[in-house]
């Protein structure tokens, strides 16, 4: 399909948001390699990282086909202000409860986003979305299992999970910062928009949190953390990017 200039800008902005979220949370998940509280968790976080970074790569390849740089250059050479990821994904891994809750909230949003994109008019993305749904199912399954188990296990684990939920919830709402191109994307049949995504997300996470005896913060207190989608980031992103691209920048032309 041929897009006009405005449409192309809207599409690229949209793709960057999706892929940047995946790359950054993927890298954060990889930081658990060797540190997991159980060997199974070490493997789980590492595997999820591998999935998400691979998924991001294929979306960067779509961007490349639309005239952007190649996937490695996109991933490893941009500065923080060029990233469109939400703040939730860029925070350091913290304690296990924080990382687990972050994954839980993010994975559900991501799963629904790709379900919504399965019949998008942007066919290259639709193919990936249909593929990713099946993979992300295992990510949500992993997070759901542990959130339910730890939410109910004992007083300490319950308190830690509730604290983690309180700490991550407003950040997670930042996933749904509405795009300035939302109308354009909807008109093109590409994406129904962040408002609907957020509604579906609340519906998806509520029963699981209830089963875990965890309480979503009162709606009147919600303060979504926005800015990431426009390139405003926390102090944590830049150092992470420096570390992530360190090897690549040693010799950008190296054959791997």
């Amino acid at each position: 399909m041929n897009y006009n200039e405005t449409q192309l800008i809207a599409i690229k902005d949209f793709l960057y948001k999706i892929a940047d979220d995946q790359l950054i949370i993927g890298h954060r998940n990889s930081e658990w390699t060797g540190l997991g509280p159980l060997v199974e968790e070490d493997i789980a976080f590492s595997s999820i990282a591998q999935d998400k970074i691979g998924q991001a790569q294929h979306i960067y390849e779509i961007l490349h086909s639309l005239g952007e740089a190649d996937a490695d250059t996109i991933a490893f050479t941009r500065s923080a202000a060029d990233f469109k990821s939400c703040h939730l994904v860029e925070y350091p891994i913290g304690e296990y409860d924080f990382s687990l809750m972050r994954n839980f909230l993010f994975n559900h949003a991501e799963k629904i986003r790709f379900e919504m994109l399965a019949d998008t008019s942007l066919e290259q993305l639709g193919k990936l979305a249909r593929k990713y749904r099946g993979e992300i199912k295992y990510h949500t399954m992993h997070a759901d299992t542990w959130v339910k188990q730890l939410g109910r296990a004992n007083e300490e684990s319950h308190a830690r999970m509730q604290t983690a939920l309180n700490e991550t919830f407003n950040l997670a709402l930042g996933i749904f910062e509405e795009s300035e191109y939302a109308g354009e994307l909807k008109k093109m049949g590409i994406f129904e928009g962040e408002v609907i995504l957020q509604q579906k997300w609340i519906e998806a996470i509520t029963p699981i949190l209830e089963a875990a005896t965890l309480v979503i913060p009162d709606k009147n207190t919600w303060q979504p953390v926005y800015g990431g989608r426009k390139g405003y980031h926390t102090e944590y992103l830049e150092p992470m990017l420096v570390e992530m691209g360190e090897v690549f920048r040693l010799d950008p032309k190296a054959e791997w």
């Binding site: 199974e40 493997i43 789980a44 595997s47 591998q50 999935d51 295992y138 399954m141 992993h142």
Partner: peptide, 13 residues
Amino acid sequence: LKTPFGPTLCRSM
């Protein structure tokens, strides 16, 4: 099921 993730992405334990 011990964990949905194994030694490679395509295996569970």
